[in-house]
């Protein structure tokens, strides 16, 4: 194995820029955006177009952030797909069915995410089972619990809830009529995660974990605590999206979160985080999320067959990954010099 050096490679400013993990994702975003701006015309470039893809990006982006952090540390979280409906069901049950105050419902929904995340984290850090398998198992269990309890308590798999004006304005309002307030929340989450990954010591721990867990532990990093914390973060963020969905659409269903599993991973990968962990950045994840959302929404503004969107995402994913792979080997080679 190559012995990686800790010091950042020194080179020309341009070279350093090309080696930054975000560069590929920025290029990808620019190309995709230009493509759909051309086809979608002024409508796509105006407020409707921007709000359209930003609304989508905010939802998947809030989940992609912690999922990306987990991937940097070398772990996966598949269970987010079951946490979104579970938390929205919890909120709607508490506040809608049992008519408790909105705050109780929100707290209940969010704690679902924290608890599931805690279980994931403990199972992953205490056993040697890969996180992919642990979170698949937890996903099935949470799906079963959500469905079972919804039918047991409510007799239906769909619950409605009409939030009060204040709650709605905080979590489910549209600013300027079109921009979902969750975009602001997303930005807030971005700031928090940026601080955590790039400015706090916690970030170095995450990178170290993804690089080599054993030596990270030897270096005195509380690896289990970091892992559990990260899984709780992803559970929390998924639950947040679930709660915000209840406030926006005033209903909760037991199914429907599965798309978030692979969508969040795709955003992260397009954003340049390698699955093996140890590299990546928050800016990259944000760019990846934006690219993903522009393709998914641009399709409708460009009046193309919506199914072509999947083909573009697939191709983009491969292109992004291969080019990032190129960047990565470039960086490693520079570091080895």
């Amino acid at each position: 194995m190559t012995s990686p050096s800790k010091s950042r490679a020194k080179g020309s400013a341009l070279g350093a820029l090309a080696r930054r993990p975000e560069t590929g994702s920025l290029l990808g975003f620019a190309v995709v955006f230009a493509f759909f701006a051309m086809l979608g015309g002024p409508v796509f470039m105006g407020a409707p177009g921007w709000s359209s893809w930003l609304n989508i990006a905010a939802e998947v982006g809030i989940i992609a952030l912690p999922v990306g952090l987990l991937m940097i540390s070398g772990e996966f979280d598949i269970s987010v797909g079951s946490i979104v409906p579970a938390s929205s069901m919890m909120t709607a049950m508490l506040s809608g069915h049992y008519e408790l105050p909105a705050l109780v419902g929100i707290a209940g929904g969010l704690s679902v995410g924290l608890i599931v995340g805690y279980v994931n984290g403990v199972l992953v850090s205490r056993t040697s089972i890969p996180s992919l398998i642990v979170t698949i198992g937890v996903m099935f269990s949470v799906m079963g619990l959500t469905l079972g309890f919804a039918v047991l308590l409510k007799g239906s798999t769909s619950v409605s809830y009409v939030p009060d004006a204040l709650t709605k304005s905080l979590l489910g309002q549209f600013i300027n009529g079109m921009f979902n307030v969750s975009i602001l929340w997303w930005l807030g989450f971005v700031a928090v995660f940026f601080f955590a990954l790039h400015l706090s010591p916690f970030g170095n721990w995450i990178f170290a974990l993804g690089g080599d867990r054993q030596s990270a532990r030897n270096a005195g990093i509380p690896t289990s605590r970091v892992t559990i914390g990260l899984f709780m973060a992803s559970g929390f963020c998924a639950a947040f999206v679930g709660v915000a969905q209840v406030m926006t659409y005033q209903q909760a269903n037991v199914a429907g979160g599965q798309a978030f599993i692979f969508n969040s991973i795709m955003c992260v990968v397009i954003g340049g985080v390698l699955l093996t962990g140890g590299a990546g950045s928050i800016i990259g994840i944000v760019l990846g999320t934006m690219t993903f959302a522009v393709v998914n929404q641009g399709i409708f503004f460009a009046a193309m067959d919506p199914n072509v969107g999947s083909i573009i995402i697939g191709a983009l994913l491969l292109a992004a990954v291969i080019s990032n792979d190129g960047f990565r080997s470039l960086t490693l080679r520079a570091a080895a010099k």
Partner: peptide
Amino acid sequence: TNVPSLIITLATLVGMQGVVLASSKL
């Protein structure tokens, strides 16, 4: 490439879903 196979096959998964639907409709 040294891209993990999960990601490669995630790309072909999404791509093929689109190809199958689009070509069937076409």
